[in-house]
Design a binder for these strands. Structure first.
Lengths: 137, 137
DNA sequence: ACTTGACTTGGAGTGTGCTCCAGGCTTTAG
DNA sequence: CTAAAGCCTGGAGCACACTCCAAGTCAAGT
């Protein structure tokens, strides 16, 4: 029953793969968002596929606007086993986040519409009959 | 040809009306996003309806994620007259921003979907047959 | 043997956008 | 006359999430 022997990644490789900076990867590990990554005999990090999977998920949460503090709460729950309790707590965090995200998306859409209207207004303004074109420098 | 005599607002009133802090209003004025607001004989700001309109627009741009630096560029253009040149430049800024915004909305939607899938996974996991419920504390 | 380059660490520094504070002024209420 | 409320200013401070740095280690290349 070996570990999955699939390739490992240096921090740079992992960073590139995940579209995130190496500094950020170290930072996430330092603050505990990321479990301690296995090292080679020289103390260098070796990221494995499952690590990348987890990083992907962290990045997804961050990109969607979850604050790091909340991510830590979530991460801590993933480390306290898979009892109904903690699964439910994780769901609660994600669902709360989903609500915020939905609200945010709706708000952004609304902003987008209003900005679009402004652009249309400008375009109408430029087309206005009887308007002198500007001096072209 | 009087000015519009409609009511004026103190900074607190304006802040409340616009859902923004009084500090932020002063800050926006200080950095020039907001033109100098007329004062009463004691030096206190008196916001008028058109000021509120402008603040609303600023807030819209900020809420939609436009950085303050870009807002300043935009604001400066609104102060350099209404030549085709500047109107076009303003449109360019807004359209660029719209593109970013659309991208962002799409990305957020994508994140939302993935988070939704995760929640569904958790729910499936909790329903899994043969699973012992956790101790209920 | 030496240089190069990728990695390590702890900790300091940065950018953004506010947010708060001290000290001062004026009007209003008691 | 005093006290409280609300505003003013310049400037300091803060929260967040990185981002950068100096000094060091190690291994491979020439």
């Amino acid at each position: 029953m070996d570990q999955n022997q699939s390739r490992t990644y240096t921090i740079q490789e992992a960073a590139e793969e995940m579209q995130i900076s190496a500094d950020t990867l170290r930072y996430y590990e330092k603050i505990g968002l990321l479990h301690p990554i296995p090292r080679d005999q020289n103390g260098r990090r070796m990221y494995g596929e499952p690590d990348l999977g987890w990083i992907y998920w962290l990045k997804l949460l961050r990109d969607s606007g979850m604050p790091i503090r909340t991510m830590k709460d979530y991460v801590n729950l993933t480390r306290s086993g898979d009892d109904d309790d903690t699964i439910q707590a994780r769901c609660a965090i994600l669902e709360e986040h989903r609500n915020q995200l939905r609200g945010k998306i709706a708000h952004l859409k609304d902003c987008l519409d209003k900005i679009t209207k402004k652009v249309e207004f400008y375009q109408g303004y430029r087309m206005r009959p009887g308007r002198r074109a500007s001096k072209k420098r």
